[in-house]
Design a protein around this nucleic acid. Structure first.
Lengths: 97, 97
DNA sequence: TTGACAGGCAAGTCGACACTTGCCTATTAT
DNA sequence: ATAATAGGCAAGTGTCGACTTGCCTGTCAA
């Protein structure tokens, strides 16, 4: 699994995660359209496709083919492992509020 | 406040956060030494200093001068706001386990 | 006051990555 | 079969950031 933080580094990829939270299981073209509409990000289809590849390599999204469509689903478990378990939980050892 | 995710993008900066979790309030030289020892990161003092600047700009660390030393303290609140409140909590609306 | 220690500023190099362009494959409908 | 849809592969460009080198400022002890 690739680096979760490297995947989160690009603003476009964070916007994609936002989009998948809003509506899970979108296709590449749907994501492209909604990025342009709601996030003012006018990217090429290839650009979004490469972002999706990075996100999938980081385990943040999973995909399923459906005929000629490829659906993308959000998975936030790597986020919990990478951020919460690494920095947020250890601090709770001292100040558990 | 600068971008939290951009601050987390560099592995060296994440290692610095790990170091400050292990021992809070370290100086620049202490962090330099411990990065070399425990993380196999042999960086210049200036490199670490620039990383600390980025982390402080992102609000992830706060500093306090103490004579000729500058102590660095971890602050994880931006992490919660940027990650948990953005992606982890919204998912809990559907599947709250 | 001189030297050592802790840190800051500025310019320069270099590699990685975000993005584009161009073309190709696979699935579905007419 | 042909065209349209949904997506993939590969190469190229350009910018940004991580890191270094060199020098300067401030603090403390002798």
């Amino acid at each position: 699994m690739a680096d979760v933080f490297e995947a989160l580094a690009a603003p476009a990829r964070r916007a994609i995660l936002d989009e998948l939270i809003d509506r899970d299981g979108q296709t590449l073209f749907e994501i492209c359209a909604r990025l342009t509409m709601k996030h003012d990000l006018s990217l090429t289809r290839q650009a979004v496709s490469q972002h999706l590849t990075v996100l999938e390599a980081a385990g943040l999204i999973s995909t399923r083919r459906e005929g000629r469509c490829k659906l993308h689903f959000l998975d936030t478990t790597p986020l919990t492992e990478a951020v919460v378990n690494r920095w947020l939980k250890p601090k709770r050892k001292n100040d558990n509020a």
